[in-house]
Structure formats: C-alpha cells, structure tokens
Amino acid sequence: MSRFLAPILILVVLVGFFFIGLHKNPNIVPSPLIGKPAPQYELPLLLKPGETLGTEKLLGQVYLLNVWGTWCFACRAEHGVLMEIARQNIVPIYGFNSRDDPQKARQWLADLGDPYVASMVDTDGLVGIDWGVYGAPETFLIDQTGIVIHKLIAPMTMRIWHEDFLPLIQQLKAARP
C-alpha cells in the first residue's frame, strides 16, 4: 500500500514548500557578514577629499552604513526616508558612495539634501566587494565594537526602519550605553 501512497505524499510536501516559497524573494541574498566584524578599510570622504574614514575610526558607536550611487534608481526613492531618519537623530548614517562620479554625487547631495554624517567614496568598488555589496541601496547596521548586526538589501522605508532597525538599535544601546 505504501508504494501507492508515496506519490501523493511527495506532492503534499512539494506544495507545502512552494507555498512557503511564494512568500519569499529568491533574489535577496543574505550577507555572510552578519555577526562578524566589519571589513577593515579606509576611504576618502566625498565632501572632504583630504580626509578618510573606515571601520577603525568608526568604532565605539552604533551606526548605519548606507550604500548609494547616483546611478541607482531606488536610492532616489529611499532618500527621503533617510533624511527623515537623520532628522530623528537616533543613530548616525554614514554614506558609502559606490562606483560613482564624485562630481555627480556631490550634486545629488546638494539637490536632495545630505542625510549622511559623512560619505565615503569607493570609486572602483573594491571595498564594496569586501562588504559583499551587490546592488544598491543596501543598508548595514554596525554596533559599537564593529560587528555587523543587520543588513537590508532594498530601499529603506519608515516601516522597515521601525520594525527591523529601531528595536535592534535600542537593544544595542541598552546593552552598551
């Protein structure tokens, strides 16, 4: 009897998996960096080309690292949200300007406003590889000790900010004021 039942059991299992699969996005690849130290780097700043910033210098604070570029449509869409988050002044946002023309990038910030404490310039995209960046916008959450806590691979929205980021940030701040 069991050999006649096997096919329908396979069907039930498959349909179950497909049902779960329908609610997932196969295009989003989670970062292996979560829970690990952020990569070491130092990059020049977009607005103060003489100065540099990097993981080492950013230690000691909880911050967001937002990957953006003027070539990225969705970055324009999320820009207003980033401005709002910056206004709330809960965590600093650092920009990571990826594969861009610095001239255009500066113009972008002048036109749309600058939510970033500072933006680093990764013209050739090499540091981006260390961060596992594969599209933009992407937003990382890094804690005081330089550990990567969370990564968003999509435009930031207020909802995502409230539901995913804020609780994590409050936790981090509570653990290590």
Partner: peptide
C-alpha cells in the same frame, strides 16, 4: 568569494 557573498 563566499566570505563576502555567501554560498550563493
């Protein structure tokens, strides 16, 4: 590659 992008 996998250190940065995962087994994907």
């Amino acid at each position: 590659m996998t250190d940065r992008y995962g087994d994907f």
